[in-house]
Design a protein around this nucleic acid. Sequence first.
DNA 1: CCTACTTTGTGAATACTTTCACAAGCCCCG
DNA 2: CGGGGCTTGTGAAAGTATTCACAAAGTAGG
Lengths: 208, 208
Amino acid sequence: MKRIADSTVRRLSIYLRFLEGSSQRDLATVSSAELARHGGTTSAQVRKDLSFFGSFGKRGLGYSVPELTNSIRDILGLGREWNVIIVGAGKIGTALAQYHGFRPRGFHVVGVYDTDIGKVGTRWDGIVVRDFSLVTADLASRPVDIAVLAVPAEGAQEAANRLVDAGVKAILNFAPTQLQVPPDVAVRSVNMAMELEGLSYELSSRAR
Amino acid sequence: MKRIADSTVRRLSIYLRFLEGSSQRDLATVSSAELARHGGTTSAQVRKDLSFFGSFGKRGLGYSVPELTNSIRDILGLGREWNVIIVGAGKIGTALAQYHGFRPRGFHVVGVYDTDIGKVGTRWDGIVVRDFSLVTADLASRPVDIAVLAVPAEGAQEAANRLVDAGVKAILNFAPTQLQVPPDVAVRSVNMAMELEGLSYELSSRAR
DNA sequence: CCTACTTTGTGAATACTTTCACAAGCCCCG
DNA sequence: CGGGGCTTGTGAAAGTATTCACAAAGTAGG
Ligand SMILES: NC(=O)c1ccc[n+]([C@@H]2O[C@H](COP(=O)([O-])OP(=O)(O)OC[C@H]3O[C@@H](n4cnc5c(N)ncnc54)[C@H](O)[C@@H]3O)[C@@H](O)[C@H]2O)c1
Ligand SMILES: NC(=O)c1ccc[n+]([C@@H]2O[C@H](COP(=O)([O-])OP(=O)(O)OC[C@H]3O[C@@H](n4cnc5c(N)ncnc54)[C@H](O)[C@@H]3O)[C@@H](O)[C@H]2O)c1
């Protein structure tokens, strides 16, 4: 199967979010032009994105909202539950662990880890913070799909190494570090400082 | 001046972070190959990225770490202070307001706003949460460069509209919504659900 | 059933990004 | 001071992504 561009996968997420919103306002069908308008792209782009995976629309009509919703969920692998752990129970880790927006999309936080003995044992929303040194043993008995890494930059690579050794195959990294991992491990980074710097660049370059 | 690709600007941020780290370990110079290794790219890419803005290296030697650091800071517009406000004093907004990693890079949080009357008036780190309805008046007397939007998805577009009306020219959006703004306003989004879905896609497609 | 109208799906064309490959420039050492 | 060894800067080539444009397939209404 042909490799799909990252940009396409991101847009599928955007289309999905709009579809889930519009189905509540019970539209039966939606056109590529409408999807494009809300996704900030063009109708040709929408059709091309979907065409990589099959043919979901009806000519002259558009796409059935419930059918396309299911198809995109399927494509993205959202037809199942994913077990997620959060590593680092600091400000960001806490916010994520308490956030209720992930559960409905199938991401289930099954554990929170920290190295700070003062935080181990505290509990929010029924999840107890556990000592990070237990992670290898824990994952041996209960597999985990995705680890969210929310530790300071200095410790991020080392923590990632341990997660990879424990068998984690996907990491969402919040530390402002470029993680080095084996090619069979997927990494995505959320780097807020980089986004601010991007805005800084745009503001500066426009002024010129 | 030619339009610079987003991907190039992001990589400049990555190079900068590495340079700031390596200058502490006092290396005098760095080669494009070294920058590439830490930035997860190729040496040709590093040189091409920099070549859009000028010629910063010495053939046979590489780049002077302090000089290149300054040049990239300049390119990104980090040679000055940017005034930032945070809109939405919830879990994410609180974490951001208390985060000390932005100040050293020139991003200065000068205000936090919320609509919840129970939160208005509370104070962290010397910053008092103010009523969001005061934002227009506040910005008229004290200009703000960047607004960080950390409100629930339902209210995000409306809040963005008000910020744009108040003269904000750059928004960092944390709500999982595609904001519609005029073309002279820069928007970057941090969408954690989308990143998790990207990982979900990768895990699913690899299994095949 | 036929005609007018809409919207998809998709090759081909265009635009953009990355990689290649090498001349030119600079340092170091003898 | 000249030659060997590196490393940059950059056109040209290759590779990706987006946009164009239109035939094909459907709807709707009489
Ligand atoms: N807070 C923000 O708004 C913000 C913004 C941008 C980036 N970040 C980044 O996110 C990461 C976390 O930030 P934060 O503000 O939550 O930090 P924090 O200091 O509040 O929390 C970090 C937590 O990680 C724990 N920890 C340290 N090393 C660990 C390890 N090896 N294993 C497990 N836990 C470990 C610490 O005990 C602490 O509880 C940092 O890399 C930071 O740069 C945070
Ligand atoms: N917390 C997370 O881990 C997380 C993860 C991913 C995405 N997000 C997104 O980030 C955003 C904020 O999340 P949160 O968890 O901090 O939510 P939250 O509910 O903790 O906080 C939202 C805050 O915004 C305030 N608010 C609401 N409408 C407002 C308006 N018009 N103007 C100003 N303030 C307003 C509320 O009073 C509240 O204090 C949401 O869009 C959420 O989907 C959060």
